Simulated scan of single mutants.
Amino acid sequence: MKKIIVLFFAISLFSCKKEEVYGPLKLKDGQEVELLVDHRYGSDQDLLIKLPEKELAGASLVGFDQREIGYTYRVKARFHNDDNPPQDASSYSFIFTKIVSKEQYKGTESFDIQLITSYIPGGPVIRLSKTGNDYYFVPDKLQLTYANSTVQSQLEEIYQNVLEVRANWQKGQLPKWKAIKATVTHDPQKFGKAYLVQQIQFTP
């Protein structure tokens, strides 16, 4: 009789553990979900949405190396809970498994990207590089073209500050602005490879 009670207790504990849920969406570890991935890569609106509820997923998508800028995806992924995440990292993530659908964005609506990102540790970093005469938001992947000469001059001013910060990093030099917001659209001449910057807003 005692063995039966112990066995029942062990099974009950195991069942409870299997049913344990995590995160704001109360998902089980390993649970498969469908997610909506936005076409606005790296933008303020680049939010991962859980379907069909259309709720914020609340975690990052890992392993989606096939993602192309300018396309909206529906993907399958498995929720993962890490009991011992790295320092300053989230306990939750979604592991990409497969693409359900892929659709090219054909609109012209503008959206915003932030050219200064703060890291912990590390502090604020300007997300702008330059190869030849071309500016990049993501090196060798996502170029920033410009709608007019004013924007071109602003991008060059930002890049010169990148060089200043890089040359004086040991002195703790920071970017000269607290924030830089660029309003962009997909560049129709380089779709999927460049954002066309319409205007830039600096926060001193």
Rank of each mutant, 00 (worst) to 15 (best):
Y146T: 03
Q114G: 11
Y159E: 01
V125A: 14
G122C: 06
Y92F: 15
L128N: 05
S129I: 04
S90C: 05
T117R: 11
A147P: 00
L144A: 02
P85L: 05
Y71S: 09
Y136A: 08
Y136D: 09
D82V: 10
Y92P: 08
I99T: 12
D83R: 13
R78F: 01
L115W: 01
Y73R: 08
L115Y: 04
K106E: 08
I95R: 15
P124D: 00
W177R: 04
K171F: 12
T72F: 07
Y105N: 08
P175Y: 00
I116W: 01
G122K: 04
V162T: 02
I113G: 06
D112R: 06
D88W: 12
A147W: 00
K141H: 10
V151F: 03
V100E: 09
L142Q: 14
P124K: 06
E109D: 11
Y105R: 04
V165G: 03
S110Y: 00
S153N: 11
V162K: 06
D140N: 13
D83M: 12
W169A: 15
R74Y: 00
Y71A: 08
P121T: 05
L174C: 06
G123H: 04
S101A: 12
V125H: 14
G70K: 09
R74P: 02
S129E: 10
Q170P: 07
S90F: 07
K98I: 02
P85A: 10
L144H: 01
D112T: 11
K178L: 14
I126Q: 10
T72K: 09
N148I: 03
Q152Y: 11
S90T: 10
I95V: 15
Q152N: 11
A179D: 12
D140M: 10
V100N: 05
P175E: 00
Q154E: 13
F111H: 02
R74D: 00
I95G: 10
P121V: 03
N84E: 15
A179V: 00
S90A: 09
I99H: 04
G132A: 08
S91E: 15
A77K: 01
Q173S: 08
P85R: 11
V151G: 00
T117D: 12
F137Q: 03
I120E: 15
V151R: 00
Y146E: 11
P86M: 10
L142K: 09
Q160W: 03
D140G: 10
N168I: 04
P86Q: 11
S91G: 15
T131S: 13
Y105T: 07
T117L: 10
S90W: 02
F94Q: 06
N81I: 10
K181L: 06
S118F: 11
F111K: 01
D82L: 13
S110P: 02
Q154Y: 10
K106Q: 09
S149G: 00
Q173H: 05
I95P: 05
F94G: 05
F94I: 09
V125Y: 12
Y146G: 02
S101I: 01
T150F: 05
Q154P: 09
V151N: 01
K141I: 13
S118Y: 09
R127F: 05
Q170K: 15
I116A: 02
P175G: 05
N161L: 03
K102S: 13
P124M: 01
E103M: 07
I95W: 13
P175W: 02
P86G: 08
L115C: 08
I158G: 03
Y92E: 11
V75W: 06
L144V: 02
R127V: 04
S93A: 13
E109M: 04
K176L: 11
Y92D: 14
N133V: 04
Y159C: 01
